[in-house]
Simulated assay, not measured.
Amino acid sequence: MIATELATRLHIDPFVVGTPEPALCTNWDAELAAAEPALQAMAQQYERIFRDGGLPITALSRCAVALATLPIVARHRPDAVVVWFDAHADLNTPQNTTTGYLGGLALSGPLGMWNSGLGDGLKPENVILCGARDIDPPEQSLIDHDVITLVEAGPNLPARLQAAIGGRPVYVHIDCDVLQPGIVPTDYLVPGGLTLNDLSAVADMFALHELVGIEIGEFEAGQDATGVLIQPGPLLDALRPLLDTSWSSPRLA
């Protein structure tokens, strides 16, 4: 749904990677092995986009796809900061995960905290968590020791986030559960999230920076109280300053 809406708004044809498959609901290693062909294909598409001078505009199924995208971003744009909008930090590793959930390892892999087989190269100083609030103790330790920067939801969010970015180019990752529960349908409901107004204000700020790309994930198909399928239009309206930015050669992956 996100990809279809983006393609319509941007007047570009989507490049589709992978096909829908039933969830395995198993441990991270089995999930990673099953997803590897699609993840490798995503990495190859990102490689083509950056090699051709384009910028990726990506609709993700799950945050784990960032295992494939972020190493390519780090290789081609080592000057860029990845702003990770998510209710969760996704900084667990195979050694400390308590759930075995692959998505919980999505950011730690590109940071080289474990070997995903898809590369790394992302530097901790080039990562900013924004809106994270369901954080496990090992992840909190990285924040407490200033290895990873966290900008919490709350007043003056755009100004605080802008200060953390420090004028660097920006690659934006958005997990929809960063929003307050009920705004869009997501699997995880974590109170204390951003509003669409918060997201719009941040997008206005981002439009003042050089944008390296954007990926949007974890928007789940769902119905409102009347049974009508919830559309992603309001979410993308909030991100309009980003989408309207004049990119030289946008590609939708």
Rank of each mutant, 00 (worst) to 15 (best):
T149V: 12
N115S: 14
E36Y: 12
S141Q: 15
D198C: 07
L142H: 10
L70G: 03
E21R: 14
A153S: 07
A89Q: 11
V65C: 09
W28Y: 15
A74R: 05
G192S: 10
C130G: 06
L157S: 05
Q140M: 13
P191G: 04
I128P: 12
H88R: 14
T226P: 00
V127A: 11
M42T: 13
L111Y: 03
N92S: 14
A59K: 00
R75Q: 15
P185Y: 00
T226Y: 08
V172S: 08
D177F: 02
T8K: 10
I135A: 01
Q44N: 14
D134S: 15
A59I: 04
L236T: 01
P124R: 12
P234C: 00
L102V: 12
A68P: 00
H173C: 10
I183A: 10
D134I: 04
A33G: 11
G103S: 11
L196S: 05
P158C: 05
G154F: 04
T8A: 15
I49A: 05
P14G: 06
L142N: 10
L60H: 03
I216E: 01
I135V: 09
L179A: 08
P241L: 13
C25N: 14
L111D: 03
H145K: 14
I2E: 00
I2Q: 00
L102Q: 06
D13N: 12
I214S: 04
A7V: 09
D177I: 05
L243M: 09
S116E: 13
S248H: 12
P250N: 14
M1Y: 01
N115K: 13
S141F: 02
P94T: 04
Q44F: 03
Q140T: 11
V172L: 15
A74E: 13
V172P: 03
D136A: 15
I72E: 10
M113H: 02
L161F: 08
E215I: 04
P124C: 10
V65Y: 15
R160F: 08
L157N: 06
L208I: 02
E31D: 15
V228E: 08
I2G: 00
A163M: 11
L32I: 09
T4E: 14
V82K: 02
Q140S: 13
T226E: 08
M205V: 05
G119R: 05
L236G: 00
F206N: 06
G100S: 08
V190F: 04
V17I: 15
G121M: 08
G217S: 05
G213A: 12
P78K: 02
G227K: 02
A225E: 10
P137D: 09
P37S: 05
Y171I: 11
